[in-house]
Design a protein around this nucleic acid. Structure first.
Lengths: 237, 237
DNA sequence: GTCTATAGTGCGATAGAC
DNA sequence: GTCTATCGCACTATAGAC
């Protein structure tokens, strides 16, 4: 289990990701030690995680702007004063959360992509990793999508770059597959956009799939089948 | 051209939709005459359109919550007092805009679907109409997507119903095509979700396609080709 | 029909006790 | 490390002049 790159089983994937989140919270604390007034690491890490979770939960209902810091106090059982020991202002809280999430996504995607040989194998690994990640971190993915437009121009560009980076991961795989003759040739950039759109629907409209009783693994089967029909131009049936 | 249900040419479609928007603004005024304090119809309709446009523009940048009514004053060149002659409060402004948009979408979709014979024809008409509509009313589609979650439970249910209704339009077409042997049999509800996701990407990520110089007509060609590969299980090339 | 001026409320942020 | 109390500000909404 020292390096388990692409877990196609969701249960296993979940464990990996949750472990990873502990590390990330610790990283965040260590990097922002100058602005975070709390000195005991175990207290700080515990409460940071609490604050992040509460923020995602409250923002999902009303949006980050509409969420008051007093709402956050109630949800975390911390006072205004205590909250301000963990961040310098509401805006910086937003930045930290987005930064944290992007780091997890990057780390997990890179781990997943390493050690897959063929284009088809890579495609499966990339789709399933992205999908399962968006399931484990559904709150964050939704939050990032909704709140990105309210950011400063710098952070906004970072988000756009992230979108295009992910898309390039997919279009590179498609190009490789076309070159080796595994996939039919086509507009790989456009197909990559379609793949992203399909992945996005899972975390933007999860209520719909939950209502229908569609599991994340089944959704993965579905879209992989659809993607293969698009890029192979032939039914697998 | 007395009734031109499915305009596959975007230029023509645009004219139809813009004409329709005038009507809608007038309808809105007449229906809300009790709450709108302005008595001269031509003044009211002109300023209502001004207010709606400004709201969509400002909300696109910071979100409806973060948009202050003073921002709206600046953008419309109206005073606070004047604004409050057109709606009873910020929340009702939100309701009116969403209501207005849903009405246009419903009207245009119904017109477009009438008078198409085969399943493939219907599919093309439905996809192109939805896509072109989301281009003409991009501001509204984006707004509706972003602000729906901030609404009361009633309005939220209306939005979910609208999502499922549109999806049923597509899954019905897919079922018909499967029954008549035009399409391969498959999970029509799931395929309809994929179609919706593809259509959604156009108005949620339009910056991306603009950056790449993809026109709305080209995007339509692309996704129709992809959809056909999924439902026919064979390449059209 | 539109304006300016202002009431009233709730926010983000901070100071200082414990 | 966490609390309570409070400041200053920006917001929505309204009243009344023109």
């Amino acid at each position: 289990m020292s390096s388990s790159p692409a877990a196609t089983d969701f249960g296993e994937f979940k464990k990996l990701a949750l472990l990873s989140m502990e590390d990330i919270c610790r990283d965040i604390y260590r990097e922002n030690r100058d602005t975070i007034k709390i000195k005991k690491e175990h207290v700080a890490v515990k409460n940071l995680a609490l604050i992040f979770d509460a923020t995602l939960k409250l923002s999902a209902r009303k949006g980050f702007q509409a969420m008051g810091l007093r709402d956050l106090c109630r949800e975390t059982s911390l006072s205004m004063g205590a909250l301000y020991s963990y961040f310098t202002g509401k805006d910086s809280l937003l930045d930290i959360i987005l930064q944290q999430g992007r780091r997890i996504v990057k780390r997990m995607l890179e781990e997943a992509m390493s050690g897959n040989a063929g284009a088809l194998e890579k495609l499966h690994a990339a789709v399933r990793t992205h999908l399962y990640l968006s399931e484990v971190l559904q709150g964050w993915f939704f939050f990032a999508f909704m709140e990105t437009k309210n950011l400063g121009r710098e952070e906004q560009k970072a988000a756009m770059a992230s979108e295009l980076y992910t898309e390039k991961v997919f279009s590179d795989i498609l190009d490789e597959g076309a070159a080796t003759g595994v996939f039919a040739a086509g507009d790989s950039a456009f197909t990559a956009s379609l793949i992203k759109a399909m992945l996005q629907d899972w975390y933007l409209k999860r209520w719909k799939y939950r209502q229908r009783g569609v599991s994340v693994e089944l959704y993965g089967d579905f879209i992989i089948s659809a993607i293969e029909k698009i890029i192979m131009g032939t039914s697998k049936n």
